Amino acid sequence: MKKTIIVDISFLTPYEVNMLEETQQVMRGGRTGYPTGASTDVSNRWTKAQAGAVITLTYSANIGIDASLGNNFAVAMEGDLTFDAPTNIQADTMQGGIIKVTQDPTGGRVTTFGANWMKVGTFSEDTSANKTALYQYTVIDQTHVLVQHLGDI
């Protein structure tokens, strides 16, 4: 026996109404693979953990992080290192993440941040052999990136 349920959806946003309609189509077998639940042009509420891959950077004395590749980055030092301004930043996104910098077996390598990076708090990295420093960053715009030394492991 088929039942009809009447629900007031006037409080829903247009996006939520669209998602509800797509869900109904999927449930009726009219669409496959829908809905994904996420859209790039609206706010999304995640109900499960979201994790991106850690992008391994190739060591160079100067590295400009390519922000289009991800949010979290790691590099193994082979010498002193300077982070230049990130590239491929999306305007007004406040992209952020973690940068993991690992000393080589020699240790004593120095990490510096270029002119676009604005240090927050005190930086006192442990440069002992094989130590790893963790930095949190937030991209404000092409010329302003906040960075904070979280600690060493």
Rank of each mutant, 00 (worst) to 15 (best):
M1T: 08
M1D: 13
K3C: 02
K3S: 10
K3D: 05
K3W: 03
T4G: 02
T4V: 12
I5Y: 08
I5A: 01
I5V: 11
I6F: 07
V7S: 02
D8P: 03
I9R: 06
I9C: 07
S10C: 00
S10V: 04
S10R: 10
F11W: 04
F11Y: 05
L12G: 02
L12Q: 14
L12H: 01
L12M: 14
T13F: 05
P14D: 11
P14H: 03
Y15N: 14
E16C: 10
E16N: 15
V17I: 15
V17Y: 09
V17L: 15
V17W: 02
N18I: 11
N18W: 15
M19I: 10
M19Q: 10
L20K: 13
E21F: 13
E22N: 09
E22D: 13
E22W: 14
E22P: 00
T23N: 00
T23I: 09
T23A: 02
T23L: 06
T23Y: 05
Q24D: 03
Q24T: 01
Q25H: 07
Q25T: 06
V26H: 08
V26A: 10
V26P: 00
M27K: 12
R28Q: 04
R28M: 04
R28D: 00
R28E: 07
G29Y: 05
G29T: 00
G30K: 04
G30W: 08
R31D: 01
T32F: 05
T32M: 07
T32Q: 09
G33Y: 01
G33K: 00
G33N: 07
Y34K: 12
P35F: 01
G37K: 03
G37T: 10
G37C: 05
G37D: 07
S39D: 14
S39E: 13
S39C: 08
T40E: 14
T40P: 12
D41A: 14
D41P: 02
V42C: 05
V42R: 15
N44H: 03
N44W: 01
W46Q: 13
W46F: 06
T47P: 00
T47L: 05
K48S: 04
K48Y: 05
K48F: 04
A49L: 03
A49D: 09
A49H: 09
A49K: 04
Q50R: 06
Q50E: 13
Q50C: 09
Q50D: 07
Q50N: 11
A51G: 08
G52Q: 05
A53L: 11
A53Y: 02
A53E: 14
V54F: 01
V54K: 08
I55V: 10
I55Q: 04
T56D: 11
T56H: 04
T56E: 13
L57I: 06
L57T: 03
L57H: 02
T58L: 09
T58A: 15
T58M: 10
Y59M: 01
Y59Q: 05
Y59E: 09
S60R: 08
S60D: 12
A61G: 14
A61C: 09
N62D: 11
I63H: 04
G64H: 08
I65D: 00
I65A: 07
D66Q: 05
D66N: 11
D66L: 03
D66R: 05
A67C: 08
S68L: 13
S68G: 13
S68N: 12
S68C: 11
G70I: 04
G70E: 13
G70L: 11
G70Y: 11
N71R: 03
N71D: 14
N71M: 10
N71L: 10
N72E: 14
